[in-house]
Design a protein around this nucleic acid. Structure first.
Length: 276
DNA sequence: ACTGGATCCTGACTGC
DNA sequence: TGCAGTCAGGATCCAG
């Protein structure tokens, strides 16, 4: 499911209900996620107060103050199929509801993740130093991310530009859907070696990445199958997709046939006329 | 340092 | 209706 717009949509949905609340109980029903949830997870979190809910890359960071006055962060990733929803506590459990978080005076927060590629970590140190976050590249919506940065980072790299911009060490939050869409908007063929693209074209690409993510965000993300926001509603960016999932259909710019390919292990669609 | 491939897991879909 | 095969939004680990 979730790329940056979907994670941010989830964050915005959860924060008003949960920030400032005290976590009364944590129930782990299925600990076998991408990394196993440790046995003392519930105990570490119980009684803590949520001070802030942030996002870094595709991670949700729940900043907590523990009863003893210490601080820590719950680091959550939704993997490919995860969702965090707020529901009335008496709501029957769904298949794959793996963890329940009961905050005082708030709906119950439930993590549902059929494929279990998501993860939950707790760290008592500064969250940014955690091994999951330490090596990440810049946020694409941050002013520090621009064409000059991409150009500099890409010199000497022969990997396809699509793989390059999906590499979280280069820039975070750009998954398969938005990579394909941004490359279409920038007129760049996904298979082109990253190191063989001129600076001016990277200006276009950086702007396209930012624009496509911001547009998706205003529409609540993209729902292909699984994704739902914290209130259970889907995202509506799917109808705006120009290439993703449209192999064999006609290009909205030139009318030609969009071409499907596999790049790495990922399905890719592009317009052979508009993207060079 | 980079690159491509395999891998974790379940569910939806396709074709026979 | 059933069954086998294919594919899926992510990110890590490994060998070369």
């Amino acid at each position: 499911m979730p790329e940056l717009p979907e994670v941010e949509t989830t964050r915005r949905g959860l924060a008003p209900h949960l920030v400032g609340r005290r976590l009364e109980t944590v129930r782990v029903r299925e600990p076998r996620l991408r990394w196993p949830i440790p046995p003392d997870f519930s105990q570490l979190l119980t009684g803590a107060t949520l001070m802030d809910l942030r996002r870094r890359a595709k991670y949700l960071l729940f900043d907590l103050r523990t009863p003893g006055g210490g601080s820590g962060t719950l680091i959550a990733h939704l993997g490919m199929s995860g969702s965090l929803r707020l529901v009335p506590p008496e709501t029957p459990l769904l298949t794959h509801d793996h963890v329940q978080f009961a905050f005082a005076g708030a709906p119950e927060l439930r993590l549902n993740d059929p494929r279990r590629f998501g993860s939950l970590h707790f760290t008592s140190g500064p969250a940014d130093g955690h091994f999951l976050l330490a090596e990440l590249g810049p946020e694409p919506l941050d002013p520090a991310f621009d064409g000059a940065y991409l150009f500099a980072r890409s010199r000497g790299r022969r990997a396809p530009v699509k793989a390059f911009i999906m590499d979280a060490h280069v820039v975070v939050g750009v998954g398969n859907i938005y990579a394909a869409e941004a490359l279409f908007r920038a007129g760049i063929r996904p298979s082109r070696p990253a190191g063989r693209i001129a600076a001016a074209r990277y200006d276009l690409l950086a702007a396209a990445i930012r624009a496509v993510l911001e547009e998706a965000l205003t529409m609540g993300g993209t729902t292909l199958r699984d994704f739902v926001a914290s209130d259970g509603r889907p995202g509506y960016f799917k109808q705006s997709l120009a290439v993703y999932g449209r192999g064999g259909e006609s290009c909205r710019r030139c009318g030609g046939e969009l071409e499907g390919a596999r790049l790495g292990q990922r399905a890719t669609v592009f317009c052979p006329t508009c993207q060079r």
